[in-house]
Design a protein around this nucleic acid. Structure first.
Lengths: 191, 191, 191, 191
DNA sequence: TATGAATGAGTTTTCATTCAT
DNA sequence: CATGAATGAAAACTCATTCAT
């Protein structure tokens, strides 16, 4: 028992230190020595738990941004309250991982280029278009704005809020910030 | 004459290659050898123009995000069309620097932490609060939303659009995207 | 225990190799690769113990030449036997550091120029003048030679012996050589 | 005429700059760029006059130390005045080349080791032994000191004076310094 | 299992040298 | 000839990773 706890404790200390340093200085600029020093263990200990430095990254590569947007598509409107619920839920689920979010955004920016044939963002936006189309047809959303623009703008607001929140250091809640931003957005697109 | 031109050409080739590689793989992950190979010059040539690899970064550290937001504060309303004009202008001015924008966002994320006493983003948002306050007092903006929330949301939309645009590869215009997003935002906050 | 010993052993091997190579080829002409190869360790090991090649130099910058000449000044004559004792002692104390001496002389020559306001040598000579003055007043030293000349000549003999000894490879003793040379010197200045 | 003069002038400027820098920082630590900059010419100009940086060194490798000691051996005594004359002459002949002397000593120290089978110094000393032997037999030099010790001490005084003088910056004459030092030496070995 | 000394491939940086202008 | 931009071999230095203790 004691043994197991100690091990987990050590792993956690390493992960925490790595996460913080990665998000502060970037993955490449952070050395294993820095991580282990910050974690208070020897350099070799790192490799007892991770085969390579890169393995740590995988641990942090959750599908952090867009967990369950698709659920919105499966049901009929009205969508506005459901969107608010969703972003609130998404935000709350990520609320403890500010540094992890910053790291994820860094990695996203550092790898999004060179990916030929369109990257994840536009695909995400496109997947939301049907929702706004149906909302428009049902009279919930204003007819003047193309659904594709609505979808893309929603995505931009979402990302901008993540970015802003992840680089802040106040005790604000990501869920709340998302709700406030999306209330304005929804007022802008509702009829 | 010819000599000078060749020189400038060489520097430009190095800068272009570096900028592209930095934004694609990140600064640290890009080696000088890769840069010079991409630029079609010898490794040593790099150091004829830059004392160190890091010196290149400085070249790319323009105040890329927020050039002239403050101009909005100096004049009386209505603000909505002026905001649209401003973001259009900002977007158009940065329209040729997609990779530079991506790099700037990377650096911003990689250095925004650890900066004690609040970083630039929140300060930026706060500097816009008076504008929305006055717009609210003059009846242009809806009374239900706190000016601070409006300001922060505007910033989030702005950043989110930069992020989305900088990672895309279509021939879309940043200015146009900003205008579309801010039209929705303004509809959401106007009375 | 064993660990510590090995470590010290490694450092010593590096230092010895470096010292020898530096004194044979000069500091600049010696590469870290040569040092580590001569020491039988990997290149990286060098930098585990020294932040930079230059740091090694500091290790060798003992005040090798003139440790305690001033002790002669504090007591009354006769000085001749005390001078012999001193140079013998000085020579014996440096007897194991032939290469280090050669290196020190190299560095001295390579840095003694450009030092504005007179360098260490003349100051050293001047510090010995009072000794010869007092020796002259007490009748121990011949009156015909200015004390400043005696002091400077003593210094020259001292340096010349160091130089000659440091570049030789016989099993001769520095202390003995100094004594032999200074006996002649003293015979030349005694009344 | 003008052309020839200009060329010689350029070469001289390069040589002077190189000599000064070499003696101040050592040969290896001095770059061609530094030399040409100090000489006020372009880097390429250097290689119009010297095939390689190393070629400059050859220019400075005069047999600076011991030009004509052997002349002393060919004639009968008394030697004392002739020794004084010789060192005076030697000193005067080198009096304009303080930096060159410093450089020569540097090179001597940096190359004297590793030379198997005895280096030049001891050979030089040995070549003077017969002189002191004959001087002893003729009653000129004291019988108590072995001729080999006399020879070596003379050499040490000679070298020490060169070293001291070459690192000084006063307007003293090398010839005079040698004479003063050797007067004391001779008093120490004369009967 | 924890440690940290040793390793060496890979990176940055220097600089003598070449050569087109 | 003078120039200085370009070159690339060689040097200094970094750091993930291994492994004996």
């Amino acid at each position: 028992m004691k043994r197991e706890e100690k091990k987990r404790e050590t792993v956690n200390r390493i992960i925490d230190a790595a996460l913080r340093l990665f998000s502060e200085k970037g993955y490449e600029a952070t050395t294993v020595a820095e991580i282990t020093e910050a974690a208070g263990v020897a350099k070799g200990t790192f490799f007892n738990y991770f085969k390579a430095k890169e393995e740590l990254l995988v641990k942090f590569q959750k599908a952090l941004f867009f967990n369950e947007i698709r659920i919105l598509n499966d049901q009929p409107g009205p969508y506005a309250p459901r969107i608010l619920d969703l972003v609130k839920e998404l935000g709350d689920s990520m609320n403890d991982d500010r540094v992890q979010m910053r790291l994820a955004l860094q990695r996203f920016l550092a790898t999004s280029a060179g990916a030929p044939g369109g990257h994840g963002l536009m695909a995400k936006a496109e997947s939301m278009i049907p929702l706004f189309e149906r909302g428009q047809q049902s009279g919930e959303f204003a007819p003047g704005v193309p659904p594709a623009v609505m979808a893309r703008t929603a995505l931009q607001i979402y990302l901008g809020t993540l970015l802003s929140w992840s680089t802040g250091d106040e005790n604000d809640s990501l869920g709340d910030q998302l709700v406030l931003a999306f209330r304005i957005f929804l007022k802008g697109v509702l009829t």
